[in-house]
């Protein structure tokens, strides 16, 4: 795995141990995990691969926009090559499959194995390791497993809140009802509706309202991200919130490209009208989606994303709030303790 620190992590299988090597080209760091000491391997699926796919797809879209709409031939060729390169990366990412994080656990430590960052590879390596470990430790004794299951029967499975035992102060999970998320998604939904109306029937007031709503829900998204940190909000809501901030970044980027590419044309059309900054804003608000295809595309993209993310987010937060409300009283108590 090549990280931003330019280090490369690899895993080697020895006779009696597995060796994790972290190399930066100038030096190597080693970690030996002996088969007799390995207690467990924990694999967790991550969304990093999907995130990269989205980012690469957006980069391809942006490059294609440049390649299709720009006029100068060398620049167009450059953007075609760029989009081709991004497409190759996208294919490679898709071919390598979903991403994951693997941890190896011994009696005294729990270490990450950064080289096992793809689920397919991790499964294969764990299969190989299992054979090697079982050769040293023996197969899992059914009696031990039975005893463990008996323990589960004797001590029934604790509730989720009971199982959430924080390892340190920094990992305390607190209850959060999702008010900020609800506000954010409601604003996004409203903005989606306003932008949709603006797309069909453009007015300066509507564009101004939409811009104001965007600015407000940007702040709300950041606040929601802060609020959801180490809270019991479901993973889907978290992902929708992160997708929302991604959408905001992309839409700002697209708007910026649009302004840079098309603003000189607007200025040529109305050379005397722009005297102050306010006039410039007015000129930008005056641009109707019906006037230009790229502007219409950006409007449609913004409206669709706002509507979809807003609606999905609202539904999910509502479900979370209902679940929290119907949870047993003891759960609420422990939630209050966690908040306190």
């Amino acid at each position: 795995m090549i990280t931003f620190s330019l280090s490369r992590c690899s895993l080697y299988l020895g006779d009696d141990h597995v060796l994790a090597v972290d190399s930066n080209g100038f030096s190597e760091d080693y970690k030996h995990f002996y088969f007799s000491d390995i207690q467990a391997i924990i694999t967790r699926r991550t969304g990093r691969g999907a995130t990269w796919s989205i980012v690469l797809a957006l980069m391809i879209a942006c490059s294609l926009m440049g390649a299709l709409f720009l006029e100068k031939e060398p620049v167009r060729i450059f953007f075609w090559v760029l989009s081709g390169a991004f497409f190759v990366f996208l294919l490679a990412n898709a071919f390598r499959g979903p991403t994951c994080i693997c941890h190896i656990m011994t009696a005294v430590q729990e270490d990450q194995l950064p080289s096992l960052n793809r689920l397919r590879v991790a499964r294969k390596v764990i299969g190989t390791l299992r054979h090697a470990i079982e050769r040293v430790q023996g197969r899992l004794n059914p009696e031990e497993v039975h005893t463990s299951q008996t323990e589960v029967i004797a001590n029934p499975m604790p509730s989720l809140r009971e199982m959430r035992q924080p390892r340190g102060r920094e990992h305390q999970i607190r209850h959060y009802d999702g008010t900020m998320h609800m506000m954010t998604f409601a604003l996004m939904l409203t903005d989606g509706v306003v932008t949709g109306i603006d797309l069909l029937h453009h007015t300066v007031t509507m564009t101004a309202v939409s811009s104001l709503l965007t600015a407000v829900y940007c702040i709300c998204i950041v606040a929601a991200l802060v609020k959801q940190y180490e809270s019991d909000i479901p993973g889907t809501v978290r992902r929708i919130t992160w997708a929302s901030i991604g959408f905001v970044c992309v839409s700002y980027f697209l708007s910026y490209i649009l302004v840079v590419l098309t603003f000189p044309t607007w200025m040529n059309r109305r050379p005397d009208s722009m005297i102050t900054q306010w006039d410039m804003y007015r000129a930008m608000f005056d641009v109707s989606p019906q006037d230009s295809l790229p502007v219409m595309g950006v409007y449609a993209f913004a409206a669709t994303c706002s509507l979809v993310l807003g609606a999905l987010g609202l539904v999910r937060v509502k479900k979370h709030r209902d679940d929290s409300a119907s949870a047993p009283r003891c759960g609420q108590n422990s939630g209050s303790e966690a908040r306190g």
């Binding site: 467990a40 967790r44 699926r45 430790q137 463990s148 199982m163």
Partner: peptide, 25 residues
Amino acid sequence: YNTPNLISCPSCHIPIRIDVFPAFY
């Protein structure tokens, strides 16, 4: 523990797989 496929974490619902070996017991 020792499920053949990924299963959802009971708390965060993220797909997870735990391979446990005899040394753990």
